[in-house]
């Protein structure tokens, strides 16, 4: 599903990623853990196509396609979804309209028929119910005045509606908010299945109590320094990152 080969990237001329190799097979959930400054957020932004990150080497294949050559919107249409660590507020943009525009853009790019407002609301209301969100969530402006937890829920709502093949969850610093983590975990677990692949990026092991990953990778100094099963997360929790940073 996702194959990252020797990926290097820099921000403002500073090298952050220094040759990442990582393969995530279809239907699996992988976690990337690492100390602050190891390049976790940079990896998520490079994969989703943010402009201010410069790829200096390597390739990323998404279902065999060159992901790095695609515009952010084309990546979304191909089935990639980034759940933002800090979702952006969009004053003046209604949540329902925003999600329908997004869903229809993705459907259009895939050659599928667009949905009218009634068809969309049916899907959206079902997703809202499934995530136990308040009904007025769709009527409000995107993330404006939302609590931290509501913003996370709104990300999970978008994920439920867009039904990506690969979700990247950037939860780098949000480990401190246990409620937010649970919301993200519920969102991921609801999607889990043979057609849903996820890359969960986190600093703390706690999130992985709620989303049990198939594989755990440790990122240090812009490289994957160790990979293992879910037990690796517990080892990190006990020992900390110190030893791994040296290994890089």
């Amino acid at each position: 599903m996702l194959e990252i080969r020797n990926l290097s990237a820099s921000v403002d001329g500073a090298a952050i990623l220094n040759g990442i190799d990582l393969a995530v097979p279809r239907g699996e959930v992988h976690a990337i853990m690492g100390p602050n400054g190891s390049g976790k957020s940079t990896l998520s932004y490079v994969l989703s196509g943010r402009e201010d990150y410069e790829v200096t080497g390597g390739t990323v294949l998404f279902e065999g396609r060159d992901l790095l050559a695609m515009e952010p919107e084309a990546r979304a249409a191909a089935g990639l979804f980034l759940a933002f660590q800090y979702p952006v507020e969009l004053p003046g943009v209604g949540n329902a309209n925003f999600m329908r525009t997004a869903l229809n853009a993705v459907r259009r790019a895939r050659g599928e028929e667009e949905l009218d407002a009634v068809q969309f609301l049916k899907i959206a209301r079902a997703a809202v119910k499934q995530l136990a969100m308040p009904d007025d969530m769709l009527k409000r402006n995107v993330n404006v005045g939302f609590s931290g937890g509501e913003k996370k829920r709104n990300e999970m709502l978008q994920m439920a509606i867009l039904k990506p093949k690969l979700a990247i969850l950037d939860e780098t610093d949000s480990g401190l908010d246990i409620d937010a983590l649970k919301i993200v975990a519920e969102g991921v677990n609801a999607q889990r299945g043979p057609d849903f692949t996820a890359l969960v990026i986190t600093h703390y092991q706690r999130l992985l109590d709620h989303i049990v990953p198939d594989r755990v990778h440790v990122l240090a100094n812009g490289r994957i320094v160790r990979s293992g099963g879910p037990e690796l997360a517990h080892e990190l929790e006990a020992r900390g990152y110190a030893g791994f940073a040296d290994a890089a």
């Binding site: 989703s48 196509g49 943010r50 402009e51 201010d52 515009e71 952010p72 919107e73 990546r75 979304a76 249409a77 979804f81 980034l82 933002f84 979702p87 952006v88 969009l90 004053p91 003046g92 943009v93 925003f98 999600m99 525009t101 997004a102 869903l103 853009a105 993705v106 790019a109 978008q158 867009l162």
Partner: peptide
């Protein structure tokens, strides 16, 4: 706003449409 624009594009909305959504939002207010 570059962050807002990226957020919209990351959801599959083409750049031109994303820009027009943000301009409309500014006017809506």
């Amino acid at each position: 706003d570059a962050e807002q624009l990226f957020y919209l594009r990351s959801r599959g909305i083409p750049e031109a449409e994303a820009r027009s959504i943000l301009v409309r939002a500014f006017l809506t207010e």
